[in-house]
Structures are given as structure tokens and as C-alpha cells.
């Protein structure tokens, strides 16, 4: 008998059953849970023999009949899809670039994957000319794609704000010349935010990603200045000014939790109570430091995500809702197949541009010179690298083809995989376990929202 491609899990008081191939999601009761537990064929006639001490025979048969009805409707035990093979194509459009506006930083955060801003190289800024030429590069290489994205990143991009302005100026010209639509995002540690910069960011509708790890005793452990002093009390008022000046829209507070701050649900509460409504906390990606998260921490962290579900639902019902990035999920109108198979599009439709104009598959892989694709002036030279990314779908990754979460996580982050395993096809094991837990939580939240008829304002950004 073919292995049943289903996944059942409990969050709070809710038991859920996901039919992996169809995506059908069901809330189930104890009888169904136990029927599915006691045999590889839950529809076989003698199941009641295993469960007769716990349930009436009629209830067990009734449960099995419901399972059969769902199977016949194509909502349970469905066979795998036959997906088209990913073929090599002549032209792959680029639709998003991450501009490394500065390979320098005014902070020395201990966990920084950019090696405190310089990516292990000589500290440098992107020139105005490179910033403009990068915009020309994406416009010339985007084919028929109309919606294009520019991320301003670093290091710290506010150290070189003229280059940000230069890129935006060029993008606005191209919007008129070539009927393109640019969207902008800027990631900052907030130290250099001024009224003038905040006004500019708001006027140009730039989404903001603001780095803050939580209360001072957590934030200032890792996010420090060159002299080792903390940053919380300096950046908090600037962050608040920035988000309240834009009517609390179009931003995320982006924090990192580490081995030293595993109880991150308390951190989320702290941030929510500070008035932040869009919050993201990510586990640090690192393997050999005193702050690295270990495999043995996973059970504790899974309980933290469940605690966060409880807090999230309480506040949702009480009207004091906040938005947690990893609980965002659209189960009625989600992304289409091509995105689910490949995720972020690193190396194909998404690339990073260094201050010199070099092209890399993503902002995290700038750390590794083996991934140098080419540059914005001469185009892509390493088509072999690009083809590898193009063909690395969830079906090419280790453990992903049979994983229940494959159509939700899209195989995880290439950068994290390479950072931890030196292979973009081998997902980071700890990150993978936590991502699966977050998906379970997000599905449970959506199920509870529908079951209890709660108004949900939808995912943001």
C-alpha cells in the first residue's frame, strides 16, 4: 500500500489533519486521531479491535465512514501531483535585487552574517554611479516582468544614503521610460534615522525593516557599538518615530533570538507592548558560537512557538492584535506553484549587488566568492551557477521531496543551507525543524480563526 501522504498535529486544543498533496486541512477529534494512529491503513475493517477499549464500535465505524467520504472527494489520502520537469530556459528574468549600499556598519553586532558589515572584505560604500547602473541592470534584465523590487541593504545603508536616493531617482525615471513599477525596502539598525531621512522614506513609500532584538537586556547582549556599549535606548525612540510617522504601516521590527534568549515569546510580548504591530523574530544561524542554537534546544523552542500561538489568539480575540511574520499564511489565496517549488528565487529572479557592482545569488551568499555570478556592467558570466539554482526545487533538496511541509516552506533558505552545510541542497536541520513548527502554528491559527469565526486583517507586507 502507498504511504499515506498526510500530516497530523496538535496545537493548543486543536487537532489538525493535513492532506499533503491536495492541501486539504481538517480539524479532527480524538477518534479520528486514534484511528490514524493505529494502522497504516486507517480504513481497514478490523480497526475497531484496536480501539474497542476506548470507543464504541459504532463511533469508530462512523469515523471511518467520514474518512472514506473525504477520500472519495479527493480531500484525503490523495496521490502526488505529476509536476512538469524544470527545463533549462534561454532567458530567466530578474525581478528583484538587493543593493549592498554599504559594506560597512556603525555597529558590531556579534551574530552578524555580514561579518559586522564588511562581508570579510575591505569596508566600502557603493558609488552613486553603481547604484544607478544596478537599476539599469534590473530594468534591462527583467524581460516582461513589470513589478520589480529593490532592497537597500548593507552593512548599514544609512551610512551611504545618497546612493539610496540615487537609485530611487533612476528607478523613477525608468518607471516612466519602460512602464515598470518599483517597490523599495530598506533594512536599517536605525542609529542614523533622522527626521529628514524618515520624511524621505515615507514620501517614497519605502518599506522599512528595523532591527531590534527585544528588551535592553536581550538587545544589548548582541547589538552593540564598536566600543561594546548597547543600542536599545538610542534606537528605540528613533524606531518609534519612524513607524508612527507612517501611521504604523509598511514596516517590520526584525529581531534575532539566540541561545541566550530562547524564551522569545516573552520578547514578542515586549515588542507588542511597546506598540509594535508588525514583528518578526528569527533564530540565529550559526553553529559554533556560545550563542548558537543547538538541536537540543528545539523542543523548548517548539513550546515557545505554541505559547506564542496562545498569546496571538488571545490578543486577536481581544482586539489588541499584532502581526507575527512567521504566522502569516494565506490558506484560501496563497502563492502559485512556481513560487512554492522554488521559494525566494535566489540566483534566478533575485540577486545581490555588491558596492563594486558584482552579482551574487543572494545577500547572504555574498560571503562566498565561489558564488560570484558576474557584474552589472558585463552581465552574468557564470550561467552554470544560475542553472543550478534554477533546477534546485524542493524535489532536488535533501529530505524535502517526502516532507509534509514541502509546499509551504519551499525547501528553506539557500543561504542558511550553504552556511550550515556547504550545499544549497541540504537544508539547515535546526532551521528546518523550527520552520515546520511555525507552519503548524500558522495552519492552526487559520483553522481556529475559521472555526471561531474571528475577523483577521490578513497578512502584511
Amino acid at each position: 500500500m502507498r504511504k499515506l501522504d498526510i500530516h497530523k498535529f496538535k496545537i493548543k486544543d486543536v487537532k489538525l489533519l493535513l492532506d499533503v498533496n491536495s492541501g486539504a486541512l481538517h480539524i479532527i477529534d480524538d477518534i479520528i486521531w486514534d484511528i490514524l494512529d493505529c494502522s497504516s491503513n486507517p480504513l481497514e475493517e478490523n480497526i475497531f479491535l484496536y480501539l474497542k477499549d476506548r470507543y464504541e464500535k459504532s463511533a469508530i465505524i462512523e469515523g471511518q465512514e467520514e474518512l472514506i467520504k473525504l477520500k472519495n472527494k479527493g480531500l484525503l489520502f490523495t496521490p502526488p501531483h505529476k509536476f512538469p520537469t524544470i527545463h533549462e530556459v534561454e532567458f530567466l528574468p530578474v525581478k528583484a535585487i538587493c543593493l549592498h549600499i554599504s559594506h560597512d556598519c556603525n555597529l558590531r553586532c556579534r551574530y552578524c552574517f555580514a561579518k559586522t558589515g564588511g562581508f570579510g572584505r575591505k569596508r566600502s560604500h557603493m558609488s552613486l554611479e553603481v547604484a544607478k547602473s544596478a537599476i539599469d541592470f534590473i530594468a534591462d534584465n527583467s524581460g516582461s516582468r513589470r513589478n520589480l523590487e529593490i532592497d537597500f541593504f548593507g552593512g548599514e545603508p544609512l551610512l551611504n544614503f545618497d546612493a539610496v536616493k540615487s537609485a530611487i531617482e533612476r528607478a523613477k525615471e525608468i518607471e516612466h521610460e519602460k512602464d515598470k513599477n518599483f517597490r523599495f525596502t530598506l533594512t536599517t539598525n536605525a542609529v542614523l534615522l533622522t527626521d529628514e531621512i524618515i520624511d524621505y522614506l515615507n514620501e517614497h513609500n519605502i518599506s522599512l525593516i528595523l532591527s531590534l532584538d527585544g528588551p535592553p537586556e536581550i538587545n544589548d547582549l548582541m547589538r552593540v557599538k564598536p566600543d561594546g556599549s548597547g543600542t536599545y535606548y538610542e534606537v528605540l525612540p528613533k524606531i518609534k518615530k519612524a513607524i508612527f510617522s507612517r501611521e504604523e504601516k509598511n514596516y517590520y521590527i526584525r529581531g534575532t533570538y539566540t541561545k541566550k534568549s530562547l524564551n522569545f515569546s516573552d520578547t514578542v510580548i515586549h515588542l507588542a507592548d511597546e506598540g509594535f504591530k508588525n514583528i518578526s523574530l528569527e533564530p540565529v544561524v550559526s553553529s559554533d558560537k556560545d550563542y548558537s542554537i543547538k538541536k537540543s534546544d528545539i523542543p523548548f523552542l517548539e513550546r515557545e512557538y505554541e505559547k506564542l500561538v496562545e498569546i496571538y489568539m488571545e490578543r486577536l480575540k481581544g482586539g489588541k492584535t499584532f502581526n507575527f511574520f512567521h504566522f502569516n499564511m494565506e490558506i484560501f489565496r496563497g502563492p502559485c506553484l512556481s513560487r512554492r517549488l522554488k521559494g525566494c528565487g535566489a540566483g534566478t529572479e533575485y540577486m545581490a549587488v555588491t558596492p563594486k557592482g558584482e552579482l551574487y545569488p543572494c545577500h547572504q551568499l555574498v560571503n562566498y566568492e565561489d558564488f560570484l555570478l558576474g557584474d552589472i556592467y558585463n552581465g552574468i558570466k557564470r550561467h552554470d551557477i544560475r542553472k543550478t539554482f534554477h533546477k534546485t526545487t524542493i524535489f532536488e533538496k535533501e529530505n524535502c521531496p517526502d516532507c509534509w511541509a514541502r509546499f509551504f516552506c519551499s525547501g528553506g533558505c539557500y543561504g542558511n543551507a550553504y552556511s550550515m552545510n556547504k550545499d544549497i541542497r541540504i537544508p539547515d536541520e535546526t532551521g528546518c525543524a523550527l520552520q515546520k513548527k511555525r507552519i503548524e502554528c500558522a495552519l492552526a491559527i487559520q483553522a481556529m480563526i475559521k472555526r471561531d469565526n474571528i475577523k483577521w486583517r490578513g497578512a502584511f507586507l
Binding site: L25, I28, A96, G334, C344, E349
Partner: peptide, 25 residues
């Protein structure tokens, strides 16, 4: 008598390609 409550017939939405959506990360 109801043991199963179907929340959605597909949590993948209309999964089954124009590329105009926002990049994920």
C-alpha cells in the same frame, strides 16, 4: 456525530505562474 471539520479544501490556495508577485525571503 461529526468527527471531521474541513477548514479548507486546499491550504495552498489556487496553487495550480506569471511571476508578478513579490519575492519571498
Amino acid at each position: 456525530k461529526k468527527h471531521i471539520d474541513t477548514i479548507t479544501i486546499s491550504a495552498y490556495g489556487k496553487m495550480l505562474g506569471c511571476g508578478e508577485c513579490k519575492t519571498s525571503c
